[in-house]
Design a protein around this nucleic acid. Structure first.
Lengths: 235, 235
DNA sequence: ATAATCTAACCAAACGGTTAATTCTATGAA
DNA sequence: TTCATAGAATTAACCGTTTGGTTAGATTAT
């Protein structure tokens, strides 16, 4: 038996489901002459799901194309290769985070309030896109994680956030409101607490018999995260 | 050009480095009639490194065999398939954690002290095996993460830890020493703070220009983790 | 002898990526 | 208005490699 690692029940389906050579006429046809923006977006969205589900090496370009209702060659028309597609996905994910979080960090709030709103915004963004942590962890898992591409992503998206939060920390500590913490320890810890829960959701589901992603659980978790970090940081 | 995603500089090396068909005569030859325990262990060790580096789908059985100085077919002699090998790796990793942490949790310490030592033991285990978080996150990334195999791992290795820590929490809270936290929130948060740092080390290295895995940094991080969790949990 | 351990050589399937052609739309000259 | 046409968008059919996995046999300790 082959394919123990491959996704299950896929082998026989490959050719099935496409009755003829003519393009599928779904309710919402893309493909031939359907606005190109839409095709690109559909590919990106499908790629997010596929990378989140199977990781970067496990993701199948065929599957992405199929999910986007698009011919595989179109992937390579819009994106240089699988790797470039993944990079676009990363930019999508981190760009979204940055857009959500920077306004808060650039606001005129007092350190304490600003930190709380930063954490809340971060959490809400992830909670609204629970697949993203898995996509990102796929990057961590990439061979040679210190690659130039990854440094670019770090610089472009993380740096600004990192520096702003470090600034807030400094202010809060100087004002005696925060306990003294090193940004290089604090920032990844906040990210960890927020992100880890979602990527580990299946395990949590297996451990306790709770649905870790239910609406109520996500709301509870939000309160916990804010409370936990507050207690850890504020004097 | 192919192989953009494949590890770099591997293509041409595949056949090179093996001068003839005769088994390599390293300083520490395994292979033909070298104690079987050693072969198994070598395979497992190589598998840990390979899975940690490339993830579960990205790991190559050829590479594992090569790194273990063993013929690829031997992998399949000792382990049913790639998947079973990965499962063995998981058991190795989690079994080690459990062995390290359970004695602490079964000791007679007071809640506060016991919790501190639990966190410290957890941290030390990971710090001593910084590859493990990546191996484990490969599991998170596995298709159908709620699979039966993963439930087995969760039940066998996490459950006991989970329940013991939950007990410590209850005692501490009842005694008024701990702030009231839900185990289902607290436990993954602790794991997150400990584990995330190591798996994100390359990114951290790219962000700040610090070596996230230097000895001094790991020591500092240890103090931070204990302090951070103490502040967040203890009244 | 014989059973456990180990190997070289091999294979079919899966996969990332390419090619050559086809369809559609916008543009502008007649 | 019409019509030719350039070029963007899209596709079916391929292709060469890589990869997990197998096989049939060799080697060695007992």
């Amino acid at each position: 038996m082959k394919a123990s690692v491959a996704r299950s029940g896929e082998s026989a389906r490959s050719r099935a489901g496409k009755r003829s050579g003519t393009p599928r006429v779904g309710s919402h046809r893309l493909g031939t002459r359907g606005r190109p923006e839409e095709s690109r977006a559909a590919i990106l969205k499908a790629a997010v799901a596929e990378f989140a589900e199977y990781g970067i090496a496990g993701a199948r370009t065929d599957a992405i194309a199929r999910a986007a209702h698009v011919n595989k060659a179109l992937l390579y028309y819009y994106f240089k290769d699988k790797d470039a597609l993944y990079e676009a996905v990363m930019d999508h994910v981190f760009g979204g985070l940055r857009a959500r979080v920077m306004p808060v960090l650039e606001s005129e709030l007092a350190p304490r309030q600003k930190m709380l709103e930063y954490v809340a915004a971060y959490y809400d963004y992830i909670a609204a896109n629970p697949r993203f942590p898995r996509v990102v962890q796929a990057e961590w898992m990439r061979p040679g994680a210190g690659s130039s591409r990854m440094q670019r992503v770090a610089r472009e998206h993380f740096r600004p956030i990192f520096e702003k939060v470090a600034g807030v920390l400094r202010l809060g500590i100087e004002a005696g409101e925060f306990r003294a913490v090193d940004p290089i320890d604090f920032l990844p810890s906040v990210a960890a607490i927020i992100v880890f829960y979602f990527s580990a959701a299946p395990v949590i589901k297996a451990l306790a018999k709770v649905d870790a992603l239910s609406e109520s659980r996500i709301r509870e978790r939000r309160a916990f995260v804010l409370d936990f970090i507050s207690a850890a940081l504020f004097r």
